[in-house]
Design a protein around this nucleic acid. Sequence first.
RNA 1: GCGCGGUUAGCUCAGUUGGUAGAGCGCCUCGUUGACGUCGAGGAGGUCGUAGGUUCGAUCCCUACACCGCGCACCA
Length: 731
Amino acid sequence: MPEKFLQPYDPAATESRLYAEWEASGLFNPDECVRQGVTPAEAPTYSVTLPPPNVNGVLHVGHAYEDSLQDAVVRYHRMKGERTVWVPGTDSAAIATQSRVEKNIQKEEGKSRHDLGREELVRRVAAFAKESEGTILAQVRRMGASLDWSRYAYTLDEERVQAVAEAFKRMYDSGLIYRGHRIVNWDPKGQTTISDDEIVYQEEKAVFYYLKYGPFTIGTARPETKFGDKYVVMHPADMRYAEWKDGQTIELEWINGPITATIVKDESIDMEFGTGVMTITPWHSMVDFDIAERHELDKEQIINEYGKLLPIAGEFEGMKITEAREKIVEKLRAKGLVVKEEPYVHNIATAERTGGIIEPQIKLQWFVDVTKPFVIAHSEIPGIESGSSLTLKELMLAAVKHGGVTMPQEGFKKAYFHWIENLRDWCISRQIWFGHRIPVWYKDEEIFIGTEAPTGDGWAQDPDVLDTWFSSALWTFSTLGWPRQTNDLATFHPTSFMSPAYEILNLWVSRMILMSGFHLGQVPFKTVMIHGLVRDKQGRKFSKSLNNGIDPLDMINKYGADALRMGLLVGTAIGNDVSFDESRVKGYKHFANKLWNIARFILENTANTPEINIGRTTSNMTEGDEAILAACDALTKDVTLDMEEFRMYMAAEKIYHYAWHELADKILEESKPILAGTDEIAKQSRASLLLLLLTRTLKLLHPFMPFVTEEIYQSMPTKDANYLMVAKWPV
RNA sequence: GCGCGGUUAGCUCAGUUGGUAGAGCGCCUCGUUGACGUCGAGGAGGUCGUAGGUUCGAUCCCUACACCGCGCACCA
């Protein structure tokens, strides 16, 4: 028995060494597994893409949980003998990273991005991203994640930049990307558009005003936008206003004097709300914009990009809307136009990253059209025929509906469908500087779209960058070399499994399905297992602003990576949130040591076993031994089924229970008299049995606690591979 | 307003086709020159949110309600 077993198990001394060995062995790479003969060349493939962490800080235990889940799945499939690849990567996360660096610069140097200029800011953000990347990759390695580092990708590296430009061009050429004046969510603080999904709603107590608008009374919570309102809208079936006809004009006294207003009848009006009459502000409201489009009405801008009133506001020009509101109401009161005021609670839209209050604006932006039909030349997606015509929306629905992508959790599937059904065109341009620059150049009236800048003078590239999710959406195949027709792409795509948190189901999962469907005619992954969030003790999400993140490295240093992995996995039903509980991690550190001692006992007592004689062919096997073996086989079967059905938390708990309360508590105890006895045949038989049981336990446990199991396995006389990592999963 | 998830031991959470419940940590008692004090043996602690229903039997299935969280919508 090696001397190391005389000491308690020491994760710190073991884990980094083992990870380095694994990495050096090349066995994280399926090609290398084939080359070394541990995986058959014709074995089925299993591929997983790591959801790339954002390079804007450090990982917290939520990431550690995600890594533990995936690594368990990946290690299981690798041991099953499949050509298994887990592709690592990181995400530049355009807006998140830039805004973080901007904040730092503002705080430390008192400078804004405009003080620095585009080039300098991008340089600084990239430097920050690089540093962050180093930290993150070190953290991921310490977790024991068996990622194939030879396939590492970054969303903003050269290959991915090419892929993004190519994707943009192909979609533009198919008419699915267009540029147009549309109403978008404008963040006055961040000075950029953001998508619907980057909005956080906050409840606000406000006042709801009823204002006299000629013969009508209109309701509004935003009097400061009302300057330009010259259309008054009501439902065509509202009998209270039957005397007014669509298109009829009326003269009335308004905030800054007399105006001419036009009656509009539109069915979108809720007769029950307020007075059933409203005026519209198409430039600053999605709903109003839609009404204006339907009736071809004029649209006027009231508020500028900095949240200040424009000249149309007359005496209020240049005021911030928040301070203008009171003054405008005062004036309205003085003119006798305020009929009634009542308290009112509503949600205001704020930008997730900057906290700025969203002001809808009409802007010239780039969009992905989700409702325009296109012909899909080639499709392997169930429910979609090659050569058929469909929209991106239909594609996203069909891929899940017909089982191309399986989403085992019905609840999330429902949420997915609901989101897609309400989907609007995806605004993909962002007025920031860090990220994928839009691959479009302008010269007078000419426009050029390409992966390289056009030749000739006078071309200017679009200043905007793409929404970060545009590049993330290509991730499952851009990491495999697309648009080149690589071996990897042919071998590993569609990928097998993806496990993101539910908060990015819409942001990311749906868009991967969109992009993969359009560009490859494939689904991006066959199974998507949505997991929950790890929260802090108070049940809050980990966030940089709360600074409540827990660094996995602190936990690993204290208890070991195996313990952290078990502490996060066991007792966490997939899809549910959990509060991080350090005491659980502590408990599994004890378990690692328990396992160590089980190994010590068995190795000590089998050291003199002259011939390892394992298996059912042992002719001296007693009934008791048979029962023990049968129980172990039953466990193996059970655990294997759990793994196949992604119940990692169940599998892990079962092996834990078996190792401690069966193997150690019962089998080892009852073995003591046998091993101390004089019946040599019984002794040998028992010794063989114990070695078998320990080997089996190590294998079943390896996907969850890779380090301690590998370390013990290395000392086992029953090794059937150089590394437990590639040893054969028991059947 | 619509939808989704949760409500189980002091705390954090499991509970896979319905047979009155488990893990870790914490607590109590005893023990240990024994593979293991990062331990062992034993124990206390739960009317499984509430009220109905289905069933021989419900933590589990159905209905309603309450509270917590989340998503979507509204936000004139």
